[in-house]
Design a protein around this nucleic acid. Structure first.
Length: 221
DNA sequence: ACATTAATTGTGT
DNA sequence: ACACAATTAATGT
């Protein structure tokens, strides 16, 4: 690893230590490029060439898709132990990224060059299984997103969005504005404000300026 | 500490 | 969806 130190190694081990066999883990240490990114950075943007695969060892990445206009829609989060699974296929085919990955919470990752990625697919069973497993998970998440887009009303989507945020941030207090939620869900701020108010009146959340506290939120469809 | 401004949220039509 | 009021945070003096 280029920026060598024990802390990174330990973090990496915490996330992937029992996923990968020893030799592979050592290779990751040797070859991987450590990168820190701050909130708001783009880890990957739509149209970017994929040259590396990130293994996320800390923080949260928000993946989204952009429509024709300028609007974005939230797809799913990546957290520690995850990797940008969709980029695998893009890498192999030398395609450009379909998604945008924005750093939601200060993150750290280790970048693996594509050629190593392909090599390890053949040489390491644990790598192969890891990739397939993560790809599978992404697919499930995407199907869930599609389901909710197609069949759920906005209030249900909002509730599940809040629960999602809570889970990924490991915090019941969300620092987020109504406008940001509206952008993610492809709705308008006013509508989100109203739905949030209803949730507050039901006693499921507590609203504050730039923050939402989740008290008793349940998903009832 | 106070006044001004900007950003965020609430509500009626 | 739009308009505007109300509230709160940020900044300057």
């Amino acid at each position: 690893m280029q920026t060598d130190n024990k802390i990174i190694r330990n973090k990496l081990f915490k996330c992937f230590g029992d996923t990968f066999e020893k030799e592979l883990f050592q290779e990751i240490i040797d070859i991987g490029i450590y990168q820190k990114c701050d909130k708001g950075d783009f880890l990957i943007d739509i149209g970017d060439e994929m040259t590396h695969i990130p293994l996320i060892i800390d923080g949260v990445i928000k993946m989204m898709r952009e429509g024709q206009n300028e609007e974005e829609i939230f797809l799913y989060f990546l957290e520690r132990g995850d990797t940008c699974a969709v980029s695998f296929v893009n890498c192999i085919n030398k395609r450009k990224s379909m998604f945008r990955g924005m750093v939601e919470k200060n993150s750290e990752c280790v970048l693996i060059p594509v050629n190593k990625f392909e090599e390890w697919m053949v040489t390491y069973k644990s790598w192969r299984e890891f990739i397939i497993d993560r790809y599978h998970n992404r697919l499930i998440e995407l199907v869930e997103t599609i389901n909710s887009l197609a069949f759920s009303t906005l209030d249900v989507r909002l509730s599940s969005y809040l629960l999602d945020q809570m889970k990924i941030m490991h915090n019941k207090k969300l620092k987020i504005t109504h406008q940001e939620i509206a952008n993610d869900l492809h709705s308008s701020r006013v509508v989100i404000s109203r739905l949030l108010k209803i949730l507050e009146l039901k006693g499921q959340i507590k609203l504050g300026r730039k923050k939402i506290k989740i008290t008793n939120l349940r998903l009832v469809k």
